[in-house]
Design a protein around this nucleic acid. Structure first.
Length: 576
RNA sequence: CGGAGCGUAGCGCAGCCUGGUAGCGCGCUUGGUUUGGGACCAAGAUGUCGGAGGUUCGAAUCCUCUCGCUCCGACCA
């Protein structure tokens, strides 16, 4: 491709409304342009990366035995009503009517459509297993789209759905996808972790998220430093050693703590560390229970674990007036002593004695508080958020490391939730009707490209890994008006094209400074500069974008060198 | 959904408080000089000032409504 004939509108200035680096760079490098909040066009340069991402996905999905199809974006309401999600999905589901006033929605995911297809076309266990996928534009009317392609409303996703007769088969399908996903992100040259995750609203038995590691990631994850265990902090279990409750030695004493509300304030005021305090959280649940939860002072509640324990949809910190009603005190002074509501505690509390708790009154706390003696805990459970340094639940001696991650893939074992709701069954070898056991598997294609930029950039621009880079080689013709330079660059250009190396020839009549700045911004992995100065010695300059290494190479050697570097770049896998 | 902010040339912004011919930088066009890290000189083009209504002799500016966009928050005890 010749730059002079391409559409590659780079921006010198950073667009004001782009917050994260990938968004800024994708706008500046002319990859995307915004059409509306959370809705973007891909310009040619961005599309090239996206297509590469899609092709890697396609390759690995096909290799894992999945079959590509393409479903409609406009989904008829009936299917969604049948699964019950027309009501449940909420405002994220963009609904509209056609000219006959029939209800439709833009598909945010396609369990309904695929299940409908399969129930109408698959009747026998002999047709199983089946795994169908598509790469398609999805629409979710997010409350708050942000970060460019990272959290858009319209986005391109690969979604796959597996169908098996039995649970064991579904597990096999799941693990094939797990491996395919690892291959995909490895081939992209990304640093990532596959983590155990909460299956959330989609439901199902178990699931893994694939997280590209990046500072700006929206999710916290932990991984064990000595075994394979890795999980989203929302889900991460903690090793629960048997804890002995120490013998109480202190007496319960009420102390004045004027205007000391937070754990830090109270600890400071009493000259204790936060670990010697127990915080009491008043929690409200989706089924209107009000419960007290005890945690060590320096710990954070994991509301998702709590919701699972209580078997409710959600559990949130109670409103101030509820706290006041239950504890008789404003927020900041809640404590377990004298509470009439159910008290549950994090496992860790079992190993504590003589601690400080809120006094359920303005400006008072108790010191020397002890369980059983002073109040009763009805249940212990793992309720706190995992942190770096916490012990691994799966191995001896392993400790958690923590990371920020961008969720680029998520796989779920769905079970029979949709097949039962939508009556998708096949006959087994006994002639008996069985609901299909399903799995679903998603990858955000655009988001993965954005995540790759988050992980690979510097102050001058992006540094996409070779497999995702829009072009492999940038051939910079320094002065197109110089006949020798032009002819040498043109010749190299033709040679590279003949070798199927993806080359962008910067043949613009621009000053060198502009070309070099654009080159760094665009982040094409290999840059060859043809300039009069070196050409008179028969040389061109090769710069590796990632390392910044520059070297002089003769016109004869440059082509094989590039071939080798491209091949190496495509084979590279970040250590995962 | 709660809070904050912003809509003025393709992009980044000033002007608004205190109403009176719509500006600056970059980009773009033309000519010239320049040519290894975002050059210089000269001449030029480009605006429903987000929209509607109101106040006024006169509105980018004041008032009301509205639309769009962005950021922060939604586990603090």
């Amino acid at each position: 491709m010749r730059y002079s004939q391409y559409l590659l509108p780079t921006l010198k200035e950073t667009p004001a409304d782009a917050e994260v680096i990938s968004h800024r760079l994708m706008l500046r490098a002319g990859m995307i342009r915004k059409a509306a909040a959370g809705i973007y066009s891909y310009l040619p340069f961005g599309l090239r990366s996206l297509r590469k991402m899609e092709q890697i996905i396609r390759d690995e999905m096909n290799r894992a035995g999945a079959i590509e199809c393409l479903m409609p974006m406009a989904n008829p309401a009936e299917l969604w009503q049948e699964s019950g999600r027309w009501e449940k999905y909420g405002q994220e589901l963009l609904r509209f009517k056609d000219r006959k006033s029939a209800d439709f929605c833009m598909g945010p995911t396609h369990e309904e459509v695929i299940t409908d297809i399969v129930r109408n076309t698959v009747n026998s266990y002999k047709q199983l297993p089946l795994n169908l996928y598509q790469i398609q534009t999805k629409f979710r009317d997010e409350i708050r789209p942000r970060f460019g392609l990272m959290r858009g409303r319209e986005f391109i996703m690969k979604d796959a759905y597996s169908f098996d007769l039995e649970d064991a088969g579904a597990d096999t399908s799941y693990s094939k996808m797990y491996q395919a996903y690892r291959n995909i992100f490895n081939r992209c040259g990304l640093k990532f972790r596959s983590v155990e995750a909460d299956s959330g609203a989609i439901g199902g038995n178990f699931s893994h998220e694939f997280m590209v590691l990046a500072e700006s990631g929206e999710d916290g994850i932990v991984s064990c430093d000595s075994c394979e265990y890795a999980a989203n902090v929302e889900k991460a279990e903690l090793a629960c050693r048997e804890l002995q409750t120490p013998v109480a030695v202190q007496e319960l004493r009420k102390v004045e703590t004027p205007a000391q509300r937070t754990i830090e304030e109270v600890a400071e005021f009493l000259k204790l560390s936060p670990q010697q305090l127990v915080k009491t959280l008043i929690v409200q649940t989706s089924d209107d229970q009000v419960i007290a939860v005890l945690l060590r002072g320096d710990r954070e509640l994991n509301a998702i674990k709590l919701a699972h324990l209580l078997d409710v949809d959600w559990a949130l910190m109670a409103e101030d007036d509820v706290v006041k009603q239950v504890t008789g005190a404003p927020t900041g002074f809640a404590g377990p002593i004298g509470l009439k509501i159910r008290i549950i505690a994090d496992t860790e509390i079992k190993g504590m004695a003589d601690f400080v708790v809120g006094g359920n009154g303005v400006d008072v706390h108790f010191t020397g508080a002890n369980q059983d003696r002073d109040f009763t805990i009805s249940q212990f459970s793992d309720l706190r958020q995992a942190e770096a340094g916490d012990p691994c639940p799966r191995c001896e001696g392993g400790k958690f490391e923590s990371w920020r991650g961008i969720e680029v893939g998520h796989i779920f074992k769905l079970g029979t939730k949709y097949s039962e709701a939508m009556n998708a069954t096949v006959l087994d070898d006994q002639g008996k009707s069985q609901p299909l056991v399903m799995g679903c598997y998603g990858i955000g294609a655009g988001r993965t490209v954005a995540a790759a930029i988050e992980q690979n950039h510097d102050e001058n621009g992006m540094i996409l890994p070779m497999p995702l880079a829009p072009f492999q080689v940038l051939l910079t013709m320094l002065n197109p008006k110089d006949d020798l330079v032009r002819e040498a660059a043109e010749k190299l250009y033709q040679q590279l094209l003949a070798l199927n190396i993806e080359v962008l020839l910067d043949d613009r009549d621009e000053r060198p400074g502009i070309k070099f700045k654009d080159a760094d911004l665009l982040g094409i992995p290999l840059r060859v500069t043809v300039g009069a100065r070196n050409l008179k010695d028969g040389n061109v300059e090769l710069k590796i974008r990632k390392s910044g290494d520059m070297s002089m190479t003769s016109l004869d050697d440059i082509i094989p060198q590039l071939q080798q570097l491209v091949a190496d770049g495509l084979a590279f896998q970040a250590g995962n």
